[in-house]
Design a protein around this nucleic acid. Sequence first.
RNA 1: GCCCUCGUAGCUCAGGGGAUAGAGCAGCGGCCUCCGGAGCCGUGCGCGCAGGUUCGAAUCCUGCCGAGGGCGCCA
Length: 588
Amino acid sequence: MTAIQDILREALREVFAGLGLEAGEIALEQPSRREHGDWSSNAAMALAKSAGKPPRDLAGEVCEVLSRDMPMHVSRVEVAGPGFVNFYLADSWWHAVLEQIMAEGADYGCLSFGEGHRVNLEFVSANPTGPLHAGHARGAAYGDALGSILERCGYEVEREFYVNDRGAQLDNFAVSLAARLVGLPPPPDGYHGDYVDEWAQELPSELAAMIEDIEPRPAPPALLNSASDTASTDPEPSNLSTSVTNPDELSSWYSQVASHSNFSDLRTWCRNYAIANQQATLGRLNISFERWFSETSLLDAKKVDDLLIGLQADGTVYQQDGATWLRVSDFGDDQDRVLVKSDGELTYLLPDIAYHQDKLGRADTLIDIWGADHHGYIARMKAAIAALGEAPERLEVILCQIVKLLRDSEEVKISKREGDLITLDEIINEIGPDAARFAYLLQSPDSQQTVDLNVLSEKSMENPVFYVQYAHVRACAILRQARELGVEMQTECDLTLLSHDRERDVLRYLGDLPAELKTACHARAPHRIVSWLRELSSAFHSFYHDCRVTGDDVADDLTQARLALVDAVRIGLAIGLDLVGVSKPEQM
RNA sequence: GCCCUCGUAGCUCAGGGGAUAGAGCAGCGGCCUCCGGAGCCGUGCGCGCAGGUUCGAAUCCUGCCGAGGGCGCCA
């Protein structure tokens, strides 16, 4: 079915051509005020100058020509304001929308402009050194929803999670875990959260035995074990604990762990445990990734070495102060960056460039979703891509601004104490997976967000996710009720009976879905779908209030037409809820 | 100092060149012989400030003010 915008645009183009005017992009919009029609164009105002006529006169001519041979589904046109051409649609358009939804079902609103284009969507990418926390939630909800939107527009999408399993931090985490297993404090720059103790208890017996066999083992500090209350009020528990244990003995013990012949097994176990834990949390949100990409696999495949050799051959790297630098200032970054430190260690950047190079070989467009604190890294990565000889536009970085959590009207501190963050699991436990996903998608990722946990945990009308889900439940209930009354939905019914304002409102929103999806896709804006869901739900609740579907006082053929409408609403809500990853209950 | 994002109603936020700027919540006032009232209907002196571009600016540009975040041989 041709979109109504295209029908109107084409009609206008023909009229202008008849007047000897070449219209470029013809803008069409849905006026905010109902009395300005269903669609409006400012084309006459834009073309007035080249036509050499006042805008209103030109618009008047356009309306005259249009009125002589009205475009399909248009009931009337008029000149308004400074020279707008306003279109009023005939009911036939809304009925055509409904027919299309009935014919296409769950496929309604699928677009195809992305076909043949591969998008790699990387998000969350938390370090494998702990559970996902509150700071990961927004990116998770956003990334998965954006993926669904892209897919519905025809793109081939791969959701990917980059696992930073190389380098000191994972070593550090493994040593911290080992230390906590035997009651020792973690290293000063190690991991301090309570989860470290909990995870240490899950170690398989051979790894636990390996750790327990490391001698000499310093005496555990009494304070840390016996009085956790005291420890929790101390701002730096690690200082306290090292002060009662011989620091030299401790650091010697840490080194022995890190240099143990089986240390890599411990590391691997930690990494895998963390990934499994994160996957479980994401699973609760119904989010899964096609690919979990390991950083160490890049090194194993020599991709980092090859990259460095290639860059050296190009002359885009140089040596200075004993380090290897990438000349990214030639490609848009504000300064050059170190790839290999003077001690021979790689920076984070070098494997990350190799990673993006790998992704560029697998997709046409890369979308990275990062936290706002990584904003300074964008220019660096884009410049690096340019240095590889690729177009930097192929990488799109979306920053999610931070989220402030509110409980009892007070800000919830994301960090409970050192190393111990509010976990994503805790948030899901408190408000449920649907509310969590919906809440994080209410607003544009550009804006800093305030999420009120009280509102979202209450199953009240204040909670927007329940408002929308209830609309879906209500649609299902009406259809169920009709079946129980023995009313069978006919395949053919007289849609011209649908002429109530409430019915038209509902159809208007349903008809907007394809355009709304397109906008949401181009603007990378899943929150547009959320807004649309809330509007459709509102229109449907109003319809429900004013228009009975079944009952003795409703004619059979009207019941049939309205059942079709209700089913279309159910389909529309289901599509939208699927896009944002929220469940669609049939009853509550 | 430089860079990025944001500033819209009491609160949380949409709208990102068009006509009289919208929604939810809170507040106030209504609606149950009715498919589930977890609902519906009323009710709103609001675009941080100042310039500029334009027929037209909440929207684009410049400056200022305010909030947050970045400017590592950290990851």
